[in-house]
């Protein structure tokens, strides 16, 4: 589904990513972990087109991508959430999700002006689907609330709903459980399992090791921009390089 080959990203002299090669299979939940500053979010930004990689390229759903064009990748089927929530704060929750439908709908200026049958039907479909998605992630009752007035956990869920509205093949979540309490994290876990159950591949950056271990099929570990381990959670947890990266290995 997603195959990166030797991706590198430099910011000036700083090498944020080097030689990252991953392979994410269709239908799995793939975890990406690593200490702070390891390059996880940078990799995310490359995969979603916000950054242009300095080296390497990636292949998604059979097509090659290199240049950073976020809307092209969204159209291709990669949807994301942000580490520091980036909702359209002054629009309602429903409007946020409706904007997510943009990429799968067609009405243009003439449709908007004439509001012909096709456009009206499309608008109705957008609204319906968006309501469904709001309920799906569990904020169905807050459709008319402004995004910025939702609770933190609800905002995280709304961001997932907005991403799902783009009909993604791969859903990339950047620390979705950050700042959530145990109950919220547990229901997030259920939600992610449901999403995977519906056939969407999930790429997950997370610090909550318990969540990663309980949820992911496979995990990759980044440290200083390099992949130091990859495999099933049990195996990665025992990997000496990973332990060293997290606990400070000293001189082995």
């Amino acid at each position: 589904m997603l195959r990166t080959s030797r991706i590198g990203k430099k910011f000036g002299g700083l090498s944020a990513l080097s030689d990252v090669t991953l392979h994410i299979q269709r239908g799995e939940i793939y975890g990406l972990i690593g200490p702070n500053g390891a390059g996880k979010t940078t990799l995310f930004n490359v995969l979603t087109g916000l950054y242009q990689p300095s080296a390497g390229e990636f292949q998604f759903n059979g097509a090659h991508y290199r240049a950073g064009k976020p809307h092209v990748l969204a159209r291709a089927g990669i949807a994301r959430t942000f580490q520091n929530i980036r909702l359209f704060a002054n629009l309602t929750a429903l409007e946020n999700v409706m904007i997510g439908r943009h990429v799968r709908t067609r009405a243009g200026v003439f449709g908007a002006l004439l509001r012909n049958r096709a456009t009206r039907d499309e608008e109705r479909a957008i609204t319906e689907r968006s309501r469904e998605l709001l309920s799906y992630v569990g904020v169905g009752k807050s459709g008319q609330t402004l995004a910025k007035h939702l609770s933190y956990g609800e905002q995280r869920r709304l961001e997932i709903a907005r991403a799902l509205a783009t009909d993604p093949l791969l859903l990339a979540l950047d620390e979705p459980a950050a700042g959530m309490n145990a109950t919220e994290t547990a229901s997030l876990k259920t939600l992610l399992q449901t999403i995977r159950g519906s056939g969407i591949t999930v790429l997950l950056i997370e610090h909550d090791v318990k969540l990663i271990m309980g949820l992911c099929d496979r995990v990759a570990v980044l440290d200083y921009g390099r992949k130091i381990a990859e495999g099933v959670p049990e195996q990665v947890r025992k990997d000496p390089a990973v332990i060293a990266a997290y606990l400070g290995g000293g001189d082995e």
């Binding site: 809307h71 980036r86 909702l87 904007i99 009405a107 200026v109 449709g111 002006l113």
Partner: peptide
């Protein structure tokens, strides 16, 4: 009025609110 309440109008408002998020949602900014 028509533009304001349309797919196009929503996309404009998304750009106004957060251009990066708008483009990540597939809006050709």
């Amino acid at each position: 009025r028509r533009l304001e309440r349309s797919r196009i109008g929503r996309a404009w408002m998304a750009i106004r609110e957060d251009e990066v998020a708008a483009s990540a949602m597939g809006i050709d900014t």
